[in-house]
Every structure is written in C-alpha cells, then in structure tokens.
Simulated scan of single mutants.
Amino acid sequence: MNLPTVLVNARIPRLAFATVSTDDGAAAEQALPHLHQLGHRRIGMLMGPADHIPSQRKLAAARALLERLGTPLSDEMIVNGLYSLESGQAGGSRLFGNGATAVVCASDPLALGAVRAARRAGLRVPQDVSVVGFDDSALMSLHRAASDDGPPADRGDGPDGHRALLSQIAGTAAGGDELLFEPELVLRGSTGPVAA
C-alpha cells in the first residue's frame, strides 16, 4: 500500500521499513563485562519470548562475548519468559537454582521478579547475587537496581520515531533506514562482587 511506516524495537528483515530501536547487542556487551569484572562466571540470561527479536539480539551478543571471555553460556543459564514480574520471579528462581551468581534480564519487570526470587530463596542482592535489568524504567530508580537504559526519552514513539515517519511522508528518507540508540549501563546497587 506504500504507507509510510516506522517499526519500534526490531527490524523485520523481509520488510523495508524504517526502524528505531536500542542496540540490544551493545546492552549485553555493557552488562556482561561489568559482571565478569566482579568475578561472576555463572551468569544467567533471563530473556523475553524466544521469538522476540530484541531478546534474540541480546542473547546472541551474550553468547559471543562470554565465549570470548572463556565462560561459554550453557543452556541451563538461559530462561525465556514473558515480560512480567511473575515471569521474572519464576525464571530467576530457576537460574539461581541452577547456580547463577548473576542474572542479566531483558527488561526491568523481569529484573524485579528476579530480585524477588532471590529474596524468597534467602539470597541478598547484591551481597549474594547480582541482577541487571534493561530499560532503566522509573521502577528501577525506586529499587536501586542496575539497568541498561534504552533510547533517551524515546522508544520510537517519541521525536526520532516521528521524524523518521515525517521524513518518509516528505520523501526525504528511505524506508529501510535503521536508527540504533546506544544504551548506557546505569549502576545503582544491585551488582556486587561474586560471593566467596
């Protein structure tokens, strides 16, 4: 139909639509070295649904990076779920039960669920286990949990998404352009050295 269209959060390879999203690979590449420097070698990945492209990007980057660091990511350290507090709690329980000393979560609600799972297991954050979220939502500033932030004040429905759409309408931009935002790791108190 040739309607100007902008996708938010993930490109669809077979469709030449403009896309505004966070560089999910870069998010993983910030969180994992931080945890690795703190001594964590059993790092769990608590992701969204397996077919969700941002989770796939984070997981692919995590696999490659942990392989380079000499601590390959095992299947028991990966849990896929829904983007909810309950799913984070269930996934966190599973990962901590499998021996994870740190968990990188694909969203802040998942991270808050993982924190809840740690507490229910008698673990303290960050003294016993570390947790990192993603999105840097207002919830995380209330909780003091580390989080990778996404596009500053823009998830694609803000100024940059609007500009991309208006450029297409004006005929000044190609439909397949992708705008990736570089995330920034925000440390607040949910990560610490691996427990002895």
Results as ranks from 00 to 15, higher is better:
residue 61 A to M: 05
residue 109 P to K: 06
residue 120 R to T: 10
residue 102 A to C: 14
residue 50 A to D: 09
residue 128 D to E: 04
residue 90 A to D: 06
residue 47 M to E: 14
residue 79 V to N: 00
residue 87 S to Q: 11
residue 81 G to Y: 13
residue 99 G to C: 14
residue 68 R to H: 11
residue 106 A to C: 04
residue 76 E to C: 02
residue 106 A to T: 00
residue 67 E to F: 00
residue 135 D to E: 00
residue 106 A to P: 05
residue 92 G to K: 05
residue 104 V to A: 04
residue 66 L to S: 08
residue 123 L to V: 03
residue 85 L to D: 01
residue 122 G to Q: 09
residue 76 E to G: 11
residue 98 N to L: 07
residue 54 P to N: 07
residue 131 V to F: 02
residue 48 G to E: 00
residue 93 S to M: 15
residue 66 L to V: 02
residue 78 I to H: 10
residue 54 P to G: 12
residue 82 L to I: 02
residue 130 S to R: 06
residue 97 G to Q: 13
residue 75 D to P: 11
residue 112 L to S: 08
residue 140 M to C: 15
residue 133 G to H: 00
residue 67 E to A: 05
residue 117 A to Q: 08
residue 106 A to L: 01
residue 122 G to M: 09
residue 62 A to W: 07
residue 68 R to F: 01
residue 95 L to C: 03
residue 83 Y to L: 13
residue 56 Q to D: 00
residue 45 M to F: 11
residue 58 K to F: 01
residue 140 M to Y: 15
residue 79 V to S: 11
residue 127 Q to T: 01
residue 108 D to W: 14
residue 107 S to P: 08
residue 132 V to R: 04
residue 53 I to K: 00
residue 117 A to I: 03
residue 129 V to S: 14
residue 77 M to D: 04
residue 130 S to G: 07
residue 57 R to D: 03
residue 137 S to Q: 03
residue 99 G to K: 13
residue 132 V to D: 00
residue 118 A to F: 01
residue 94 R to A: 15
residue 124 R to A: 13
residue 68 R to I: 04
residue 100 A to C: 12
residue 76 E to K: 09
residue 72 P to N: 13
residue 53 I to M: 12
residue 128 D to S: 02
residue 134 F to D: 03
residue 64 A to I: 06
residue 93 S to N: 10
residue 106 A to E: 06
